[in-house]
Amino acid sequence: MEAAMDLVRRMPPGSTETALNALLSLLPDHSIDLLSQVDLPLQVCMDKESLKEYILCEYNRDADSYRSPWSNKYEPPLEDGTVPSEDMRNLEIEANEVFSVYRDQYYEGGISSVYIWEDEDKGFIACFLIKKDGQGKRGYMQIGSWDAIHVIQVGPEEEGAAHYCLNSTVMLSLTTDNKQSGTFNLSGSIRRQMSMTLAVADGHLVNMGKMIEEMEGKLRNSLDQVYFGKTKEMVCTLRPPPEVLNMRLPDR
């Protein structure tokens, strides 16, 4: 299992699905672990009532059906599909509303879904998902995709405060293609964790939202500055740009 995860972490991000399928056939006994630990690009389904799209994940799945956060119904329909308690469902409805606005402001498009359910130890778990793909409104990309998965475990409220543990994964791929520069693709994924104990006075949603916003900012910044930067550094090590070469000339 460790070897499998080690390999997945090094595969070209675009081949993750192929790799997962290969690993599943090699390690059928670990299929549950593999499916939950290997992140694949998010899939989307249409809510037939509201005609709004929602994101599929392990957290809204029951058997082979997925629950829509908009109508609270399963597709394909499921008679006795599990649904959150009324309290959780109310929070879920509000979270989906608010998170849609958040998503629109940062992503200028895309799809988001939030799923919330009770945890065994009196707290709850919330899963915030964002999927954005296509060319983008400015048209710089030929094709791009961003999938964000944020899972927050919220502990029971004690003396007006609760403990929040956030696990986030971002998977992205962007490709530009033009005559002068050819095909240029950067893709990858990173995972980070963040824990905080916060006062619940402002409500769970505000706390969770702020954590996710901070985390997304950090992840985006790392990808942009660190990860993309490192691949550029590598290119310039392989073939230094002329200004670097000229600086070296006096040494010869």
Binding site: K137, G144, G209, L223
Partner: peptide, 26 residues
């Protein structure tokens, strides 16, 4: 072009409003 154009098309650094999201006003 990556950071200011291409990447911005996926996700902006800040919302269109150029300030952090107003969670308190939600």
């Amino acid at each position: 072009n990556l950071s200011d154009a291409t990447f911005k098309d996926l996700r902006r650094k800040l919302p269109v409003t150029r300030t952090l999201f107003a969670w308190h006003n939600t």
